[in-house]
């Protein structure tokens, strides 16, 4: 393809729009967090003081001044946005340490968990769909299995797996954050419903692709059924799965809350839940910003992957 001078402008324009949209998303996430936490009942002062009994009115007043909670709401909001823009996430009310350190500590376990469950889910979806679509008996059996998987609540699978593998069979540790063996059960409980869901979506387009003329051509060239499925049809079936993966990452973060609780894992989900219930504004903002950044990166990656898998899209868009 000859790169016309016009094309690079279009790419630049798209890039700017993309970055602008991402900034808008991050700004909105910060604002939304601020508003909700302001509306929520309760007082951040109790979170700052921790469990210490009956603070005097003077102490409360001192703390309000120290953390800027005595200023007018609009001033607080402006300061809040300014701090976030200048990269100061502040320090957590409840943990008494910088938000950056909390993120640094809690993010890796959650990222590991998300990555391993995404891989497991994709592995299951690809194998299940490719090996069974439009094969008599297998197709309906696996498609029912996928519906069943997609309908399982993560926290319930978590508990059942915990009961079976940790307490009954004693094969895997029931709790903990470190080591590969402690990652298996939590990722499975996130991956099973997600895998079922991805497979359901991919199966539809896998089946329609199998009816396409180019599949007949490939067969006529003498390719085996397995080769046709993996080399020609799978690529088409991947697309809806890829576009769902952005959504899936958002859902994984949310579902990680319950799973991290069940397996007593360190992680962002659990920390976010605790921070919200303790009105720890800086920490909540920090975690939500971090999640939004991951989401923005993921949606960018998904779009890029989309073009790599289906080059026709680039031509259609440019």
């Amino acid at each position: 393809m000859i790169l016309l001078p016009n094309t690079s402008f279009i790419i630049l324009k798209k890039f700017i729009l993309r970055v602008g949209g991402a900034c808008l998303v991050l700004f909105a996430a910060t604002t939304l967090t601020f508003i909700t936490l302001q509306l929520a009942p309760g007082d951040p002062v109790t979170a700052i003081l921790g469990g210490s009994a009956n603070p005097t009115p003077e102490t409360i007043k001192e703390i309000r001044t120290e953390y800027g909670l005595d200023k007018r709401l609009i001033v607080q909001y402006a300061l809040h946005i300014w701090h976030v823009l200048s990269g100061h996430l502040g320090s957590s009310f409840s943990q008494h340490m910088p938000v950056k350190d909390v993120l640094w500590q809690q993010a890796p376990p959650t990222l590991k968990l998300m990555l391993s469950s995404l891989l497991l889910a994709w592995g299951f979806a690809i194998l299940s769909v490719t090996l069974s679509a439009k094969k008599p008996l297998f197709d309906s059996a696996f498609s029912s299995l996928e519906t069943f998987f997609a309908g399982l609540p993560q926290f319930w699978i978590g508990i059942i797996l915990l009961w079976l593998f940790a307490y009954q069979l004693g094969l895997l540790p029931p709790a903990g954050t470190h080591g590969f063996s402690s990652l298996i059960l939590p990722s499975l409980s996130l991956a099973i419903p997600l895998g079922g869901f991805l497979a359901q979506v991919m199966r539809e387009s896998f089946k329609t692709t199998l009816d396409q003329p180019f599949v007949l051509t490939a067969r006529a060239r003498g390719l085996s059924d397995t080769a046709v499925r993996f080399r020609h049809v799978l690529r088409h079936a991947l697309l809806p799965g890829v576009s769902l993966s952005t959504w899936a990452i958002g859902a994984l973060v949310g579902n990680a809350v319950a799973v991290e609780f069940i397996f007593s894992r360190q992680g962002l989900g659990r920390q976010l839940f605790l921070a919200v219930s303790m009105h720890d504004m800086p920490l909540v903002t920090g975690i939500i910003l971090f999640i939004s950044v991951i989401y923005v990166i993921a949606s960018f990656l998904a779009d890029t992957l989309y073009v790599i898998i289906d080059p026709r899209i680039q031509e259609a868009r440019a």
Binding site: L24, V25, A28, A29, L32, W247, G250, A251, V253, G254, N255, V257, I288, I291, S292, Y295, V296, S299
Partner: peptide, 8 residues
Amino acid sequence: ILFSFPTV
């Protein structure tokens, strides 16, 4: 915006 903000 609502999508980037996880539903849960």
